[in-house]
Design a protein around this nucleic acid. Structure first.
Length: 554
RNA sequence: GCCCCAGUAGCUCAGGGGAUAGAGCAACUGCCUUCUAAGCAGUGGGUCGCAGGUUCGAAUCCUGCCUGGGGUACCA
């Protein structure tokens, strides 16, 4: 990428200046800062490094800048290097090089928006992983969008990515789910079976119970109660998972693996990990429970693994699960996407990694602030247990998958957000989603109009007008944006970039006529057709990474 | 109490050591005989929560405080 090449070139220039005796010896800052100036008048790239070097070089920043500029190695993409007060080095991209990028992007092997910086390292992104006790509710939407897009960004950056959904099919919640569903089933058949006090009281459970009664008759009533609850629960789990799969697919989220918590117990993984922890002296018994000695590994309190009432708690599963991720499956890095309401668990997870002899840095948590759903300005309470929820599916149906994804993606995970459903719908005409997609559709429209023009041999060097070059400048930013988003696990940068790229296209469209009836305009037209074709590929790629569609007409 | 996140234009939010702090929406002014006006061009709008500190340089880092949200369970 250009910024990396400039870093290297500036470092080279500094060393050359030192070797020539034009700068004193000092250690180079690492990395050398290279940024995109806010002001267009300051060039395409800039470095303030001379301001930092003033002290160590005991020279004025401007003087240092002069020396570095003088020793800059030639770069094919740099046309000019300026020294600007109070000591910046400004770099200007060469117009000819910019124009040539259009041809480069149109090459069949251009691999647009695909980097190699990940070097094929394996990364697992685990996200959503909601308790399988009912339809996904809208609270999972941000998790889904973040997790899926982070996975796409990492894939684009050259990592080997696996998307995983952890199915909590072993804990106390699923037991209550099973009992609730059985009760609803029995009730549908006229039996007087009560839904557990802390069970699931949503209407969907009654519907599913009635469905089961219709399909299976009294079959489960005739079984021993425990077996019946288990059998009904297994059917219920299938309903939940099928629904989750369909709902997530409706917003373009697909998983590589649905991982069963119960499998950790069935295949001995859990026992193996407990033995490891015992052997390592990380657990002890107290008050009838088994504890994990997290305080010895950086946490502020110890944590129960096996409860007094019997059975492992969720943390026990988490240990076995992450052992499985790192040791059994060997992921280099694992990213867990969690709501901020789980943030208190991070220290014990890090402690667990240490107990297993794993580098805690390999386990990364993306914590996102919770979304408050609003309807007509009123906050909608989201409680799955009362059953009074808005489902993910409802929101997708109401707002549309592209808008849901863009909206939830466009804020950093750290930022709380209100999602006002009425506003999201009402804003349709001014929605940035449409603005961006319209740019793509607009290009397609022009290309359709130009089907009789052969532009395969168009000369991109004719692209030297300001709106054309401004558009190319935006187009070539994609790799840097992907890198930024991948490094920071912050996919919201994509939304801003996509908007700016679309904006450059719309401006270009106003200023530069592409298809013309004038024979004299043919060559310009051919070059511009190349330009918008390349732009279309970049737009489509960034939309693809964001999981959004790229419509050919609107 | 302690821990985490946030506080930037009327609203929603970017920017998280560097140049004159940005975008969308809302407001206002222009632009459709022209490849889609779902668009373009422009104007107004700011003590970057408050107070100290570090630095050549702070919206950005540190400390304290204020406000909002979350956490602080043998629930997940």
């Amino acid at each position: 990428m250009l910024d990396a090449q400039l870093q290297a070139a500036v470092a080279q220039a500094i060393r050359a200046a030192q070797a020539a005796g034009h700068l004193p010896a000092f250690e180079l800052p690492s990395p050398i800062p290279v940024e995109r100036p806010k002001q267009a008048s300051a060039g395409d790239y800039a470095t303030p490094v001379c301001l930092q070097l003033a002290k160590v070089a005991r020279q004025a920043p401007m003087a240092i800048a002069q020396q570095i500029a003088r020793h800059m190695p030639p770069l094919d993409f740099v046309e000019r290097v300026d020294v600007a007060a109070p000591g910046f080095l400004n770099f200007w991209l060469a117009d000819r090089w910019l124009a040539a990028q259009v041809d480069a992007l149109l090459q069949p092997d251009a691999a647009i928006g695909r980097l190699q910086t990940g070097a094929g390292a394996s990364v697992q992104v685990e996200f959503v992983s909601a308790n399988p006790t009912g339809p996904l509710h809208v609270g999972s939407a941000r998790n889904a969008v973040l997790g899926d897009t982070i996975a796409s960004v990492l894939d684009a950056a050259g990592y080997a990515v696996q998307r995983e959904y952890y199915v909590n099919d072993a804990g106390s919640r699923i037991r209550l789910f099973n009992e609730t569903l059985y009760a609803r089933y029995a009730q549908a058949l006229g039996q007087d079976v009560a839904v557990p006090e802390d069970g699931y009281h949503g209407a969907y459970m009654a519907e599913w119970g009635a469905d089961l009664a219709r399909e299976h008759g009294t079959a489960f009533l005739e079984m021993p109660n425990a077996a019946a609850i288990g059998a009904v629960g297994a059917l219920g789990l299938q309903l939940v998972l099928d629904g989750a799969r369909a709902d997530l697919a409706a917003m373009a989220v697909q998983y590589d693996c649905w991982f069963s918590e119960q499998s950790l117990y069935d295949n001995g993984q859990y026992d193996k990990v407990m033995q490891l922890l015992h052997a390592g002296g990380h657990v002890y018994d107290q008050d009838g429970a088994t504890w994990f000695r997290a305080t010895a590994l950086g946490d502020t309190k110890d944590e129960v693994i096996v409860r007094t009432v019997g059975g492992p708690g969720y943390f026990a599963s988490d240990i076995a699960y992450h052992y499985n991720k790192f040791v059994e499956r060997g992921f280099d890095r694992v990213i867990d996407v969690w709501g901020a309401d789980h943030q208190g668990h991070v220290p014990r997870m890090k402690a667990m990694m240490r107990a297993l002899g794993l580098d805690p840095e390999r386990l990364v948590f993306v914590l996102y602030q919770l979304v408050t759903l609003k309807r007509a300005g009123e906050i909608v309470r989201l409680s799955k247990r009362t059953g009074d929820t808005i489902t993910l599916r409802e929101v997708i149906d109401e707002v549309g998958p592209d808008a849901v994804r863009y909206f939830l993606l466009s804020r950093s995970a750290d930022s709380q957000m209100d999602f006002d459903l009425d506003l999201a719908k009402k804003q349709t005409d001014d929605n940035p989603v449409f603005y961006i997609q319209y740019a793509h559709a607009r290009i397609c429209s022009i290309l359709r109009r130009a089907t009789d023009v052969n532009w395969a041999d168009g000369d991109v060097q004719l692209l030297n007008a300001e709106p054309e070059l401004a558009l190319i400048r935006q187009m070539i930013r994609l790799p840097e944006v992907i890198q930024l988003a991948a490094d920071n696990l912050a996919p919201h940068h994509l939304t801003y970039y996509a908007y700016e790229l679309a904006s450059a296209l719309h401006s270009f469209y106003r200023d530069c006529r592409v298809v013309s009836a004038e024979p004299a305009d043919l060559e310009t037209s051919q070059a511009r057709l190349k330009l918008i074709s390349a732009c279309r590929l970049v737009l489509a790629r960034v939309l693809e990474i964001m999981g959004m569609s790229a419509p050919e007409q609107m």
